[in-house]
Amino acid sequence: MTEERSIVAFCCRECAYAAADASANARTPLPPSVRLVLLPCTGRVSPLHLVTALAEGADGVMVAGCLLGQCHYREGNFNAVDRVAFVQRLLESVSVEPERCRMFTMSAGEPPKFVAAVKEMDRVIGALPPLQRRGDPIGVGAAATRAV
């Protein structure tokens, strides 16, 4: 990854990833720091994913989903909002900047909003000092690696 910063963006397939595809098709440039991870719905994102990503090397994690009330799976993005808020409190409690974890919403018809979210995240993370990690990478628990 660039020596700059790495941001992992968990994007829901219906709105955020669609907005990303649309803005990319329009060749809108993006900061290279952000790498997309496709999920069916932001409701799938668990604190495990967000914290582990930060622990394993990401400087920031963002969750991008549908506008509230318009989730294609009805209420997944509401769940995601709660989890992001939880992770923010968790980060604060271990003296990590809570803004390293953020949620953004947009509709598939709003590619500029996706672009703005990515740029915003990149700007904020870029302004932060490198994330302090001590000890070995935490790895992931046995249960979490169980494949279906």
């Binding site: 994913h49 582990t52 394993e56 090397g57 992931v140 979490a144 690696t145 169980r146 494949a147 279906v148």
Partner: peptide
Amino acid sequence: GAIQLGGFSDAEVLAEATLA
């Protein structure tokens, strides 16, 4: 982690997100 989503298990998502 008893319930997993087909194609989007924790192992799969974490592998992609953390390059593990």
